[in-house]
Design a protein around this nucleic acid. Structure first.
Length: 489
DNA sequence: TCGGAAGTAAACAACC
DNA sequence: AGGTTGTTTACTTCCG
């Protein structure tokens, strides 16, 4: 195989796709050569002394369509030949085969019932030390739709290597279905314990409950995060929320769909895939997470209303429907605040063991846990280089951990600079600057020469750039600029 | 009292 | 024509 050239999607290296010359999933003729390719991969892996495993999976039509806008070679370890292999389950005592072939149904169907981890992703691969796996992308799919027939993995450059990090590690996906793993043997995992400590994701059972208290933005983020290419159709998003949230249990209530669309439209964590990139999608379009959101989380959808010049008038007699919806919103806010408070309290016991902190929280469980008990999936923390900078967090920002957890991490200040840590060249915050952003005309948005606020809301949002620098996270879609971050290259 | 967060309703346009 | 999708604004409650 030729040495692959790894594509960068924004600052995220995309690992999805298939090996070179991999035919579409209808073509079986080259299966043998494909297997030879795999063998070569395996040999290389073995030679490096590293064990990998991988779940083969079917390419969904969606991902096939998405491949159309990915001009780079499709390099990851996904193949259409999954059905031709016998499922392989490694055991605790045997050396795990580099790849385990698991049929997609097995791979994804039983997630919420078995809780079994389906694959492992080493945090780094020795021969590619400059890359580290983003723990967020190691999470499982609890998603029932066909859009989740394959997994993708994102790797991020380590601190000192930035964008010129050379060949990528091979994607590693395996399935340590062993009981030891399930019985709390996390400390034996490959995931650095430091990540677990930092992420606070050890209290999996509480943190990973998904319930009606999770706001739409978090739900959508969580759903899209696990989706192939972080992309789904609106219909798939509907289905997922119907399945995983109480918000949509009433079939006659279509309001939640409106809310979903509202969040998709208004929250910059989500972007609509342009039609030219959504080939094969007949109705509507695809929605995906922005690279920044995939890495770092989602911000409040309601930020767009921050217009100090505009104060909505309150009616003397509120309409009944407004009252009801307002009450629901208020309840949701209250629950969010409580979760936030609980987490603050939990984090105020830094010297306690994880189990003690667990007990301190005494969090209620709501609904069925969707998350794996595996630390591979629940390592919500940021990559190490991002964790190095302890910064206060924006109350407007729901980071990756928070978005995956019903409880926010903390709720401190809103410095304008903190979330520009997404810059792939980490810098001490004291030395951080905004690079080429020109805030005199609306910051990231206004910095574009061709930018003209063509809608009132756009102008409103742009007016907030100087507020906290978060505008870049709020604006996107047709009438707004895509989310972007300054990256020095 | 104020502002943020969150959910919802609704108007409207575009599209299928 | 009607339904769906997407955008935007408005309004409400709850809470710190």
């Amino acid at each position: 195989m030729d040495a692959p050239s790894w594509p960068m999607v924004g600052s995220t290296m995309r690992m999805t796709g298939v090996p070179h010359d991999q035919p579409d999933h209808e073509d079986r003729h080259s299966q043998q050569s494909t297997e030879e390719e795999w063998q070569q991969i395996l040999d290389r892996v073995d030679a490096s002394g590293h064990e990998l495993s991988h779940n083969f999976s079917m390419l969904s039509p969606q991902s096939t369509a998405l491949a159309a806008f990915d001009p780079s070679p499709r390099q990851s370890i996904e193949t259409s030949t999954a059905m031709d292999f016998e499922p392989h389950t490694s055991t605790a005592n045997s050396k795990m085969l580099p790849y385990s072939f698991v049929q997609p149904e097995q791979q994804y169907e039983g997630w919420s019932t078995t809780g079994a981890p389906q694959f492992t992703c080493p945090s780094a691969i020795p021969e590619h030390e400059q890359w580290s796996a983003h723990p967020l992308s190691m999470m499982p799919s609890g998603l029932p739709t066909s859009a989740h027939m394959h997994q993708s993995q994102n790797y991020y450059p380590q601190e000192t290597h930035h964008m010129s990090a050379g060949p990528s590690p091979m994607l590693s996906q395996g399935s340590p279905h062993d009981s030891e793993f399930m019985d709390g043997g996390w400390e034996h995992s490959d995931v650095p314990q430091a990540w677990l400590e930092r992420s606070g994701s050890d209290d999996v059972n509480e943190l990973d409950a998904i319930d009606d208290e999770v706001c739409y933005a978090k739900l959508l983020w969580r759903c899209l995060l696990d989706a192939p290419e972080h992309t789904m159709t609106l219909k798939e998003l509907y289905d997922w929320i119907k399945e995983h949230s109480q918000k949509a249990k009433d079939p006659k209530n279509r309001g939640w769909q409106n809310s979903v669309r509202h969040n998709l439209s208004m929250n910059a964590a989500f972007e609509r895939v342009p039609p030219r990139e959504s080939q094969g999608v007949k109705k509507g379009s695809l929605w995906r997470l922005t690279p920044a959101a995939a890495r770092d989380g989602v911000i409040s959808t309601t930020r767009y209303r921050k217009d100090p010049k505009h104060k909505p008038l309150k009616r003397a007699t509120p309409a009944l429907k407004r009252q009801i919806s307002g009450a629901k919103g208020g309840q949701a806010t209250r629950n969010a605040q409580r979760r936030q408070q609980q987490l603050r309290e939990a984090r105020s016991y830094p010297n306690l063991s994880t189990r003690q902190r667990h007990n301190q929280r005494q969090l209620p469980m709501h609904g069925l846990p969707l998350m794996s008990p595996s630390p591979y999936y629940d390592n919500h923390g940021h990559p190490p280089f991002m964790q190095m900078q302890e910064q206060p967090r924006s109350p407007y920002f729901v980071d990756a951990e928070e978005a995956y957890s019903p409880m926010p991490r903390s709720a401190p200040l809103t410095p304008p600079r903190m979330h520009l840590m997404y810059d792939m060249q980490p810098k001490p915050m004291g030395d951080f600057n905004f690079g080429h952003i020109d805030f005199t005309n609306g910051g990231i948005i206004g910095g574009h020469e061709d930018f003209t606020p063509d809608t009132p809301s756009l102008a409103t949002e742009a007016s907030y750039m100087s507020d906290d620098g978060m505008q870049s996270l709020m604006s996107h879609n047709a009438s707004r600029e895509p989310t972007s971050f300054p990256v020095d290259v």
